[in-house]
Design a protein around this nucleic acid. Structure first.
Lengths: 208, 208
DNA sequence: CCATGTTAGACAGTGAAGGTATCCAATGAC
DNA sequence: GTCATTGGATACCTTCACTGTCTAACATGG
């Protein structure tokens, strides 16, 4: 298919597709001539993925590029690499590596007996968030964090269960990306609703 | 204290503080004269909160203003109102209200027997995310979602437990906001690490 | 083989967001 | 009285994610 058909099928304007091509979010089509390039279903699929990451999840173009790059160069050992790459999702770049919160996070991982890479950006993200909370007068100690971590463990089991049935390593990697990144707003939405429900339950304010 | 001291204590530049004052993220100080205004600890506290919401969580200025407005005008029934307000966190504004996913979400809430407001934006957020996933070939049906929802319930219990000890309604509201919004990156970081751990466990790739 | 439309590629322009800089007159501290 | 600081207003800047426009080279139908 040509670029105009790709545009029509995806709902993304031709100029934007060209922009993505320039930015390296989309591989170039097969050049047929100086003014003709051929795109296929993979391009369409990739384009939809890009729109989901930038639109639903609100990732920046550069973060999206990094994520997609990791996806391409890495088919096995999926989660470890996704974990490494996806640290840049939050607007976190300059993190104090030696903060007391970082030590606290490392101690937490130790206590949980988790097999997590020392340089996993999730550690820094967690440390930074804890630092912010402490600065606001809400220090969360390890005791408060461990129950959350146990629930995270069980969430991860659900995540991995969904990936077990997939054989194709390429599809596995993409699916893992979708589950890790795109499911986040869904899980947070569930938490918000569960909070509202629990709050209503405790304070007895029935409203129906 | 004067604005320069507020700036020094918070690490936010004077011009930025003025910007926040203009944008209504920070209440005006007590005017002492035409060229003098007095700020206090509440301003400092509020300023730190603003920086946490915009920085750590990446909220936009307008969303932050909405959230803070809700915080001010609403002291009781905290979670319900936060739930209503915080829907605008994702870059979601134009949602198809009558999508099949929306019906699916409503059915899910029904099945869970959750007491959640019909117009809670979390419903729309969840529906939109499910729609995106389906468009990418990863349809998550209710059966897959319910276990996640059950874990969300237990997370919410932990959240509410932390609020139980607080008496002052103003502090309660602020704490609820922090737990709901600011803890999200922390929980997602925990999930990433738990995924990595679970992946390592299943595939036996020990790396230490 | 010609008229018309489409395409790739390059590059400049746009609009929103989130600040930042500058200016000003009025002060307050010394 | 002098001088740095302040509040308030306004203009400006930078980044981001596109969008519009242009051009020359094609493709295609007649």
């Amino acid at each position: 298919m040509r670029i105009s058909e790709l545009s029509r099928l995806s709902g993304v304007s031709v100029t934007t597709i060209k922009y993505y091509l320039r930015e390296g979010l989309l591989p170039a089509g097969r050049q047929l001539s100086a003014t003709q390039a051929e795109y296929d279903g993979n391009h369409l699929r990739r384009l939809r993925l890009v729109r989901a990451l930038t639109g639903v999840r609100g990732l920046s173009v550069s973060t999206t590029r990094e994520v997609l790059g990791a996806l391409a160069e890495h088919t096995g050992d999926t989660h470890r690499l996704l974990g490494l790459t996806l640290g840049s999702i939050g607007p976190t770049e300059e993190s104090a590596e030696d903060s007391p919160e970082r030590a606290e996070v490392d101690a937490l991982v130790e206590e949980l007996d988790w097999d997590v890479h020392k340089s996993a950006p999730a550690r820094a993200t967690l440390a930074e968030t804890l630092g912010s909370l402490r600065g606001l007068g809400v220090p969360l100690d390890r005791g408060a964090l461990v129950p959350y971590a146990r629930l995270a463990e069980r969430t991860a089991v659900l995540d991995l269960d969904q990936l077990d049935a997939i054989d194709d390593p390429l599809e596995l990697a993409e699916r893992a990306l979708l589950l890790t990144v795109l499911l986040e707003p869904a899980l947070m939405a569930l938490r918000r609703m569960a909070q509202e429900n629990e709050s209503a339950r405790r304070h007895g304010d029935v409203h129906r």
